[in-house]
């Protein structure tokens, strides 16, 4: 079942554009990518979706993919990615992004097709779809935002919630015996035969954001080069549902998330082989 989206403002109400034209006497020193629209996002202060969107948009520009890109929106906070990226988009039901993307790519193999999914969408309700799309080696790219909670519905426990982490549905903290251990998706995806690239990066610091862009580029390249499935897990902050300031949230990524979700490239191959290595 899809999360309740009543809690956020209507699409059109937040879709106001901002004018980025410099005023007289001002010099433009930082511009937005062409693939990013001048739309104000509905994201909370300190949320990393904006950073992730920008990285994706920069790469669409740099790799000249904007005019042939189709994004499959998922259900969760990032459902409105289709308002923020200036590319064609189709909305898939909760967790079904990789299945819908398979349909898009099989129908239009010449297009650049990617999903953008949260941890509830991808690692819980959509686990079957992500695993099989990856295993088939669909020529797709997947941007996976892991912030260890269900953001849009108000901070419930996610499959990635850390042991001991308190959420609205595990108020005493996630318990290993009761709820199991958080799922490490980038490593699982890397183990599948159809995958050409799988990495985990973090958006907590400038250094890590630069590394994240490199990883995303590679996940896009394995599609455009026809090698196989590309996957990037982005460790991201959700200050609102973590009940933290943005600075505290960045610190939590470093001190709590990265130790459990190690950063790194778990697979990067030039060609797929039958051993799946």
């Amino acid at each position: 079942m899809a999360p309740d989206i009543d809690s956020i403002a209507p699409t059109e109400a937040v879709a106001d554009s901002i004018d980025l034209t410099p005023m007289p006497g001002e010099t433009l020193v930082f511009d937005k990518p062409e693939s990013l629209r001048s739309t104000l996002t509905h994201y909370c202060p300190g949320c990393h979706h904006g950073t992730a969107h920008r990285l994706v948009a920069e790469l669409l520009d740099e790799m000249q993919l904007r005019e042939k890109a189709i994004v499959i929106g998922s259900i969760g906070c990032s459902v409105f990615i289709y308002n923020y990226l200036d590319i064609d988009a189709v909305e898939a039901p909760h967790g079904r992004g990789p299945a819908a993307a398979t349909g898009v790519k099989r129908a239009r193999p010449d297009k650049f097709v990617f999903t953008y999914q949260g941890d509830g969408d991808l690692a819980s309700i959509g686990m079957a779809e992500i695993m099989h799309a990856a295993n088939r080696g669909e020529r797709l790219s997947v941007v996976f935002v892991n912030n260890t909670v269900y953001g849009m519905t108000g901070g419930q426990m996610a499959p990635t919630t850390l042991i001991g982490q308190k959420t609205t549905t595990c108020p005493g903290g996630r318990c290993l015996e009761r709820e199991g251990a958080p799922i490490r998706m980038a490593e699982i995806i890397a183990s599948l035969g159809g995958v050409a690239y799988s990495a985990r990066v973090s958006l907590d610091s400038v250094k890590n954001i630069r590394a994240a862009k490199k990883a995303l580029r590679r996940a896009f390249e394995v599609q455009t080069e026809g090698v196989g499935f590309g996957f990037v897990e982005l460790l991201s902050g959700c200050p609102t549902n973590w009940r933290m300031t943005p600075v505290q949230a960045n610190n939590r990524i470093r001190t709590e998330m990265i130790p459990y979700f190690p950063l790194g490239v778990f697979k990067d191959v030039a060609t797929l082989n039958t051993e799946g290595e």
């Binding site: 499959i72 189709v90 079904r96 349909g103 898009v104 099989r106």
Partner: peptide, 17 residues
């Protein structure tokens, strides 16, 4: 497909093009 759930969503994606 891995399931009818996925098959129908693949259909959704394909016809959107």
């Amino acid at each position: 497909a891995e399931s009818e759930l996925a098959a129908a969503n693949m259909l959704l994606g394909a016809v959107s093009t």
